[in-house]
Design a protein around this nucleic acid. Sequence first.
DNA 1: ATGCCTATGTGACCAAATCACAGAATCAAT
DNA 2: ATTGATTCTGTGATTTGGTCACATAGGCAT
Lengths: 223, 223
Amino acid sequence: MATAADEIAWIEQFKGLSQLAPDVKQTLTKRSRVTRFKQGDTVFAPGKTPDYLLLLLNGTVRVQQVSESGREVVLFRVRGGESCVLTTACLLAYEDYLAEGIAETEVEAVAIPRGVFDDLMADSDDFRRFVFHAYSRRIAELFHVIEDIAFRRLDIRVAQKVLDQAENGVLKATHAQLASELGSAREVISRQLAEFQRRGWISLGRGTVQIEDEAGLRALATS
Amino acid sequence: MATAADEIAWIEQFKGLSQLAPDVKQTLTKRSRVTRFKQGDTVFAPGKTPDYLLLLLNGTVRVQQVSESGREVVLFRVRGGESCVLTTACLLAYEDYLAEGIAETEVEAVAIPRGVFDDLMADSDDFRRFVFHAYSRRIAELFHVIEDIAFRRLDIRVAQKVLDQAENGVLKATHAQLASELGSAREVISRQLAEFQRRGWISLGRGTVQIEDEAGLRALATS
DNA sequence: ATGCCTATGTGACCAAATCACAGAATCAAT
DNA sequence: ATTGATTCTGTGATTTGGTCACATAGGCAT
């Protein structure tokens, strides 16, 4: 898949980087390297604090928090392409957090050493904006997660999730996965979905949710 | 309280800033100004997106989220002195968030225009580190809030809160305030506190919680 | 006193999480 | 194809937490 050309051209994918001065671009491409993760790989986790910063090129990394009791909440996802700084180093530099990053798909990323990152921040307005934008986005997403968990009814959130994640009216996910997306418990999700099925909005299979009445779901989701 | 000397010397309060080159320092002091907020003032809120950045000198700003139904969660506090960038501009630049900042005490802050902030980020390693540290701290705090709300039992959190916030064994706060600190509801907190009182751990008064058996509380808090 | 406002107490009810299982579906290996 | 192992789903019982609708009580101003 990856050719030598890819290794040079990745920088053009980022609006914030493509206008850099040629010499800066060159240090950047020379001193960083493209790494890959397989689906399911742990990109970062409590304990290991990497000293580089990742820019995602392709794929999705799910960032989640795990409780002692084993329950999970998905905090946000980082996707390749747009605003996609995986703020491992910076983010995790601070005390004992409890979040891990899992590659949800095949992932391609550029690993930028700490020092190069610093230089970039110093040299490029665009890069700074880029990074801050990413940070702000993360914080906004965390705000959203808190609002959801603290304030919103679960049935509504389940309905929204099903609508959001479904492709062509089908959602491929286990109840346990949905529970972790929503910071809830598996049994609770099972019961919610069973209720939706009773109402004729969906039909259930092992690992799949088939939407039968989108309007019904949507009416709940937006109430 | 504030003298002309204060206006010049504030910059020395910040480890990250005191080593700046003299000329940078000068632009900074010249192009920023010290503002004050009275206790209870709204420092920032949804809707108004200020185009300056605040560095807190003294006082405390409480950042909280409010739901449509009126329930609140305290997300974190920003305090003067140490890592204290009130990331209004950057943070709030992003889409529709729902957080507001309230001055909990008299607050003194330096308002830095967006452009000066950019220059500083470009010119000073220390300032960059300073800002990133603040960001990381916020994100870590938000992680912590999520963990608490999603995973921890409320009785434990109430006990911790009482222990944390009490001064000389007394906590001055209404049940409603505690509920908002913990993202819960007033009645629930009232009942928890009543239970603690039955167990002889605390005694209650209007607006106050008096700790009677710290060991008892602590045993619950750390379990 | 008389209100008025804020803080707290309480019962009934609902929503969600937890616990402890049972039963199905799927897959690998024999 | 049968056997096990594993993963996914269903379900009742119980507990915890949130919501609603009030009642009561303390402080404060007039």
